[in-house]
Design a protein around this nucleic acid. Structure first.
Length: 641
RNA sequence: GCUGCUGUAGCUCAGUGGUAGAGCACGUCCUUGGUAAGGACGGGGUCAUGGGUUCAAAUCCCAUCAGCAGCUCCA
């Protein structure tokens, strides 16, 4: 007999060798029907067909469980693999895990799989699922497994990488076998609803020197409704795409004449200026001074800084009068020339020098992505020069500045990464150690959670990065704080200390918004194009019912102009419904509908868009101005009135 | 950069070898309408670029450029 402890603490006694599926049946037929797999000692997930020997704690995982859903997706990946192999017998399977919201399978096949093939893949998958064939596990030792996969370099590689002595294979359907750790759903019929989503290239082992495989993405859910909800969610997310919004709202454009270079339109420029006006205000509060340095600088400067050695293939170059120049990819060397233009004392430290610096970086063609990955962008850069003792408090100060700036935009969902010494680096190990510990210390002092990215630091120092996700859940870097002991040495920076000796200062590179272009793109997605009043290119639109109210419109315009708002009036020959639809499409925060009725009382019928639909309110012009002004000054991001 | 896909009017897209299309936007006129798109007429395109096949190419082939998805990279 075996004693099984269930999650509720109760003990179930079963005969030795009873399978987990049978245990589920003993607990109840409903559970047996819903069961996907078992979980032993709260850590090892195993098939329902696994027999139990001895006393264990056991939980039954169903599809309601997130882990259950992940197993469904993984099993669905196998079913897709079987379908693909039945259509293309030459297809070699590589690796097929579940991922967020779905799964993929990497396949080596010379003939490209195309989107128009998805239908027949799905059809075949539906057949396999309908047949409801069991997933059967076969366990072999390492040697036997290697013999079984002999000749298949991908599976041989997978066996070699697998841990433990037991290597398992799974069978399903008509003789389809795949090396797999498992577990799987008990039978193919247990997949809810699925869809083949896309196909794209992916390097074997994620290594650009290796062969490019075909990665087929799919999604699987518990039922049809969940699948439909997911597809609807993707559609909604696509509507928030900043590239689409940029076009719709006439904010910016891209042109063949300058791939990767954003052209900002007048309305985009309003957002841009609102961002940097506030940025300057906050930086002043935090004791920053501002400089501006040239874009084109002698190439020798970049040899000295180390950028040429590390990044020349991503830099733009030019020449004049037989002198070679580089277009700056970073602002720091220029900033260092400013520092060295006179002597400095410890009394000036910490010295915080900011620069909205325009940099150019040659990105490979496939890397570009709207505003968030471009070849020319403006960094909200700053360099802090300080003594080693001041490092930690300066970093704490930057973190506080980051938190204050992000708060104005309502960003809460960002995560922080600490990146350590990369293979390609300058400076001694001791310096790296000291710098990395300073960053850790500051994070600890602020009690901030972070993940460590081993070997992902800049070539001159470790860094803390702030990351945020776009509407399609792709992660983008915003701010960065980088410690640098090397650049001051290379540029022979010094300051005069208390003891009247010259010493090298510590340099902290930091950017808060990162790239202003990228930040604008992320903001657009974050708000879905509905910019809060303080950022909106057009804050208010006046919509007269007919031409008869034009005089009143003029009067309101005078009032709004006086108060300093950004507004316009729609005097077009349209009915009010059409004017509203147009203003709504342009995502104007406040619409003022006015007619004879409102003119009489110096009121407006305010119409605005909220998350729960449009609302209407009749208010005095005077009151509207007062409340709106206050909301703008306080950078309120809600859409209420 | 790599794999696959795409490129037709300002925008979104239809058009599969035989005279270039729609909706929206734009212009003019009618309409002066009370909370999400009133009506009529009109202007607008070397079909990304360069080659090739063909009596004939937006359409088929090749190259280039640009964009999209993913991979890789991102000081």
């Amino acid at each position: 007999m075996a004693k099984i402890q269930l999650p509720d603490g109760s003990i179930l006694e079963v005969s030795d060798g009873t399978t987990i599926g049978q245990v589920a049946e003993q607990i109840g037929p409903g559970l047996a029907k819903a069961a996907i797999c078992g979980c032993i000692r709260d850590q090892t997930e195993v098939d329902l067909s696994t027999p139990i020997h001895g006393d264990v704690s056991l939980s039954i995982i169903t599809s309601k469980d997130q882990r259950g859903l992940e197993i469904i997706r993984h099993s669905c990946a196998h079913i897709m693999a079987e379908a693909i192999c039945s259509i293309w017998p030459d297809a070699k399977l590589v690796y097929g895990p579940s991922v967020r919201d779905g799964f993929y399978y990497d396949i080596d096949l010379d003939e490209p799989i195309r989107p128009e093939d998805f239908d027949r893949i799905e059809k075949k998958m539906t057949e396999i699922i309908k047949a409801d064939k069991p997933f059967e596990r076969l366990e072999l030792n390492r040697q036997e497994a290697l013999e079984r996969v002999a000749g298949d370099k991908y599976k041989t590689d997978n066996v070699n990488k697998a841990e433990g002595d037991v290597i398992s294979f799974y069978h399903q359907g008509d003789g389809f076998e795949d090396l797999c750790r498992g577990p799987h759903v008990p039978s193919t019929g247990r997949i809810g609803s699925f869809k083949v989503m896309s196909v794209a290239g992916a390097y074997w082992h994620g290594d650009a020197n290796e062969k490019m495989l075909q990665r087929v993405y799919g999604t699987a859910w518990r039922n049809k409704k969940e699948l439909e909800d997911y597809l609807a969610r993707i559609e909604e997310a696509k509507k928030r795409d900043h590239r689409l919004l940029g076009k719709q709202l006439d904010l910016f454009s891209f042109h063949d004449e300058g791939p990767g270079f954003a052209f900002l339109h007048p309305k985009g420029m309003v957002i841009w200026n609102a961002i940097i006006d506030y940025w300057r205000k906050v930086h002043q509060k935090y004791g920053y001074q501002e400089i501006k340095t040239p874009i084109i600088l002698n190439e020798a400067l970049w040899h000295k800084s180390g950028h040429w050695d590390n990044y020349k293939e991503n830099m733009y170059f030019t020449s004049a009068d037989d002198v070679n120049y580089a277009i700056k990819p970073m602002n720091c060397p220029g900033g260092l020339l400013v520092y060295n233009s006179r002597k400095h004392s410890y009394r000036e430290f910490p010295m915080r020098i900011a620069e909205l610096g325009l940099v150019h970086r040659y990105e490979a063609s496939g890397q570009m992505h709207g505003l968030v990955r471009v070849r020319q962008f403006t960094q909200d850069d700053a360099h802090i020069f300080c003594t080693p003792e001041q490092i930690e408090s300066e970093i704490v100060g930057v973190i506080e500045l980051v938190q204050e700036l992000y708060k104005a935009y309502g960003f809460k969902d960002y995560h922080i990464e600490l990146s350590t010494k990369p293979e390609k680096h300058i400076g001694s190990d001791e310096i790296w150690e000291l710098a990395t510990n300073s960053l850790r210390g500051a994070l600890a002092r602020k009690g901030i959670d972070y993940v460590v990215n081993e070997g992902d630091g800049a070539f001159y120092g470790p860094k803390i990065d702030f990351h945020i996700e776009d509407c399609l859940q792709r992660s983008w870097q915003l701010g960065t704080i980088q410690l640098d002991f090397s650049m001051p040495q290379r540029f022979e920076l010094v300051f005069t200390d208390k003891d009247n000796t010259e010493k090298p200062p510590v340099m902290i590179h930091r950017a808060i918004l990162g790239s202003l272009e990228r930040f604008m793109g992320i903001l657009l997605e974050h708000y879905g194009g509905w910019m809060p009043l303080w950022l909106a290119p057009e804050q208010i639109r006046i919509l007269p019912i007919s031409e008869k109210s034009n005089d009143y419109v003029n009067w309101i315009e005078d009032q709004l102009g006086e108060a300093g708002f950004r507004f316009s009036s729609d005097l077009s020959n349209e009915k009010i419904g059409a004017k509203i639809a147009k203003a709504h499409a342009e995502k104007i925060p406040y619409m003022l509908v006015v007619g004879p009725k409102e003119a009489e009382t110096k009121e407006v019928s305010l119409r605005l868009h909220t998350d729960s639909g449009d609302v209407k309110k009749v208010v005095k012009v005077e009151e509207l101005i007062k409340i709106t002004k206050e909301k703008i000054e306080n950078k309120k991001i809600d859409s209420d009135f």
